[in-house]
Computed example of a mutant assay.
Amino acid sequence: MTAPQADLIVDRPLVTDGAALWRIAKNSGSLDLNSSYSYLLWCRDFAGTSAVARGAAGEPVGFVTGYIRPDRPDTLLVWQVAVDAAERGRGIAARLLDGLTARVAAEQPVTAVETTITPGNTASERLFASYADRHGAAVERSVLFEAGEFPDGPHHPEVLYRIGPLTPTSH
């Protein structure tokens, strides 16, 4: 893995980033693609719990979307993480995840991060395992949604990864 670019900036997404986030997700080859409209809304309504990595010209080259769970206000759920194919292998996803959790934790108490990963998505499994290692947190895994629960055809199960407890110094 090569070092991340020195001029890479991790920032809150803007509505104008929505199209680029949709394109990065579409080209990822592994994410469930949401509507372009949803990425615009995400950049508007969940910018505080999401992050974008900007390249030298300010263009988005990666993103992480998330939200605080309404029934667990100490838990940040990470919805999607994606990095443009040309920028992969530079630690951008880890930098996005670390930057986002540090920013959110500075604004409210966050003691856990959750995400779902389909079996076989080794890149995501490694990303979240290394995040847990860096932050000295345990990882609990359980099936959140079985394959048969998805109404729109064949889908792999979604395994919930719960990482925590996070301490204020581990963000």
Rank of each mutant, 00 (worst) to 15 (best):
P119W: 08
H156Q: 14
A147T: 01
T118D: 00
A129K: 06
A86R: 15
E107L: 15
E140Y: 03
I92C: 07
I92D: 00
H156V: 04
G91M: 10
E140N: 10
A86S: 14
V110E: 05
F150H: 13
A85H: 11
F145C: 11
I117Y: 02
Q80S: 06
L97A: 08
V143F: 03
G89T: 01
A82F: 07
I117A: 05
G148Q: 11
E114G: 04
T122R: 15
H156L: 15
R103G: 06
V52Y: 10
A82L: 12
V61Y: 03
N121G: 02
A123E: 06
E59D: 11
R72M: 09
V81N: 07
I92V: 15
V139Y: 02
T101D: 04
L76Y: 03
G153M: 12
E87F: 12
H155Y: 06
L77D: 02
T118K: 14
H155P: 00
A112K: 14
S124G: 02
L100I: 07
T118Y: 01
T115K: 08
P70K: 14
T111K: 10
E140I: 10
V113K: 11
G120E: 01
I117V: 14
G58H: 06
D152P: 00
T111Q: 09
I92P: 01
F150W: 14
E125T: 11
R88Q: 12
R88S: 02
L96V: 03
S142F: 05
